[in-house]
């Protein structure tokens, strides 16, 4: 098993072995495709493909179960926004609200389309972030010709987010041991206890900031200077083909939508 930022993944997962640049481009491509495609059927097919990819790339499917809460958040937000606040013309109007908006058959399809878009982004990003490691962020962004210090900063954000999650658990446990009750019935008291967590967390963050700055200065880290790298991640022919396919998929989806009217809303079979 190999440890990524967030979970342990089987060493033989093909996605884990993917070139860092391809991991980042895949993450962007899947989000861009979800953004471009407006056809509900195409989006549902893409979501099924992402689900199958979890199995194929040996990413624990149990991860998805934890994201049901996230999915519910997205679904309620999109549904409420469109059901209560949109005027999308359709063949049948089911309900008219006093404030001028209404629910038509197309409102429902549009709301489902928007939900499918966000779920595709969420689960697609989960799939790729599950296999992301420090070297993927750094080498991936450097391969995109971005400055090293930017790659280092983004990597620091990801790395420290997991460290601070552990800090949070430690501080919370320490406060419980000193008698703090985080399951207070009073919401105000519970909120107050959580706010008190902020100060020790911030102290840890500031200390870490000072220590890290000193360590980097002592190690001779200079943002603007050219660097040598420990690993060599050159693109093989297979990597170049995958890269080409990813870019082609995004460009093709854009062209099909813009010039040929495909992948547009409502799409087959809803447009009759």
């Amino acid at each position: 098993m190999s440890r990524t930022f967030f979970i342990y993944i089987e060493e033989k997962s093909p996605l884990l072995k993917l070139h860092p640049l391809l991991k980042i481009i895949s993450l962007l491509a899947i989000n861009l495709l979800a953004w471009i495609i407006d056809s509900l059927t195409a989006l549902l097919c893409a979501i099924i493909a992402v689900f199958l990819s979890f199995k194929f790339f040996k990413i624990p499917l149990a991860r998805i179960g934890r994201f049901i809460v996230f999915a519910v958040l997205i679904v309620q937000a999109v549904m409420l926004s469109y059901l209560l606040g949109s005027t999308i013309p359709g063949n049948i109007v089911y309900y008219r609200f006093p404030w001028g908006t209404y629910i038509s058959d197309m409102t429902l399809i549009y709301a489902f389309t928007m939900t499918a878009k966000f779920l595709l982004m969420l689960w697609g990003s989960t799939l790729l972030l599950a296999v992301m490691r420090d070297i993927d962020i750094v080498y991936g962004l450097v391969s995109m010709r971005l400055p090293y210090y930017l790659a280092f900063t983004v990597n620091l954000a990801f790395r420290l987010s997991t460290v601070f999650m552990e800090d949070y658990a430690k501080v919370r446990d320490a406060m419980i041991l000193r008698g703090t009750n985080f399951s207070e019935k009073s919401l105000v008291q519970r909120a107050r206890n959580y706010v008190r967590l902020g100060t020790p967390l911030m102290v840890l963050a500031i200390r870490r900031m000072f220590e890290m700055t000193n360590a980097l200065i002592i190690k001779g880290f200079e943002p603007g200077r050219s660097r040598t790298y420990l690993y060599d991640f050159s693109l093989t022919i297979k990597d170049k083909v995958i890269l080409l396919l990813l870019v082609a998929a995004v460009v093709l989806a854009f062209l099909l939508k813009t010039f040929y009217g495909l992948l547009t809303f409502p799409g087959w079979p809803f447009n009759g």
């Binding site: 620091l156 954000a157 420290l160």
Partner: peptide, 9 residues
Amino acid sequence: IVITGVTAG
């Protein structure tokens, strides 16, 4: 860089 990274983290 460290201020940005730690704040983001």
